[in-house]
Design a protein around this nucleic acid. Structure first.
Lengths: 207, 207
DNA sequence: AAAAAACTTGACCGTATGGTCAGATATGTA
DNA sequence: TACATATCTGACCATACGGTCAAGTTTTTT
């Protein structure tokens, strides 16, 4: 009696298996997308039988939704951390660094998220229009305050966020393209991307 | 006798139908990805029967490959256009504008390409490592020459290209996220993105 | 006009996949 | 220990999908 659990109390095994399944699912979904992934693939990776997977999750979509929900939390954490009271340029640079580190350390999450958005965000649209929009609005206010106080140059705060997201996530999502274009003997792109991006955004934002 | 055509001469009908099929395929593939698309979907959109589609293309993958090949040409055109002899900042701004226009006017192409890269570029990896890499190398030389002559600031040319690609394509690929975050009553994001991006890159590149 | 070639399709096949189920096994509990 | 509950699985089902084929229709060629 685990499937479509309504009670809150989880057994030890439930917690273990659920974690294993979600980890395997993240692997598979980020590699093949939702439609390209099969429950059997997830089962194999999780070293569980297919019916066993379906004992813990109602269906394939339920797994996907759960993976996405978990991912979104992680994904928004750096944005939350932007603090009005610190030095503006430092805060933005810190944010860029954190986003870039996430692209490096959690490429599966980045790719899965990109995939979801590309398909029109069928599972997370409400989150985008709610949580994300509100959070961004809040941080946009901070940027506008900094702008008004002359602490940073006047730039469109929304587009600033879009650019930071785009440039940092690019190194995870388009990794294969980045590495194809670069010489094989050049350094890890992530190492040189950090200074480049920080320079770019600092230069633009310095009043 | 159209399937896996080896001769060059195409009949009127072959050209017509092939175009219709590729157009429908672009629609479908860009919406659902390769695995998420079915030949029936393409057939329906093209208003042809499934066997008829397979009369013109050997299989589903052949359609996909053809769509991608066509797309790549269009995709690289603006990069080709960068000219060493014009004003550097103007050239970069022109390139940004062209890439942004493509994101606006050919979002299906942008999304399909993004999808392909996300999945590890299974069908265009040789193109990336050949055509694209060579073309970029050539344009990188131009940037380095400009840099050396003091016409633009010293920045890593590869990362500059990555950033331009990332920021411009973002407005096509992540369109749903961009629009979710913005207020509904704000202007079309594409209109404000152009000036923002040109400012950002000009500021960084001005010596 | 007639033959040849190109084009089109309904019906069909094999496989992959999401999901079910009855029953077996392990785990916890009195 | 015995009972209950949770966990697990082989076998199975229905559907969707990629692809084939024989037979039909249309277009082009002679």
């Amino acid at each position: 009696m685990a499937r479509s659990q309504t009670t809150k109390k989880l057994t030890r095994i439930q917690r273990q298996r659920t974690d294993i399944i979600l980890e395997a699912a993240l692997d598979v979904f980020s590699d093949f997308g939702f439609r390209g992934s099969t429950i059997d693939m997830i089962a194999k990776r999780a070293k569980l039988s297919k019916p066993n997977i379906l004992y813990y999750f109602d269906n394939k979509e339920a797994i996907h939704v759960t993976v996405l929900a978990k991912l979104l939390e992680t994904w928004l954490a750096p944005l939350h951390a932007i603090n009005e009271d610190n030095d503006p340029i430092d805060e933005i640079c810190k944010y860029i660094e954190q986003k870039l580190n996430m692209a490096r350390d959690f490429p599966r999450e980045s790719k899965l998220f990109a995939n979801e958005i590309l398909q029109g965000a069928p599972h997370v649209l409400p989150e985008l229009q709610g949580t994300l929009k509100d959070l961004v609005a809040q941080k946009v206010e901070i940027l506008e305050a900094w702008s008004k106080d002359g602490k940073i140059a006047q730039v469109d705060p929304h587009h600033l966020f879009f650019s930071i997201w785009a440039t940092t996530q690019h190194y995870a999502d388009f990794d294969i393209q980045v590495r194809s274009v670069l010489d094989n003997n050049t350094k890890d792109p992530f190492d040189t991307a950090g200074p480049f991006l920080k320079t770019m955004f600092s230069t633009m934002l310095t009043p």
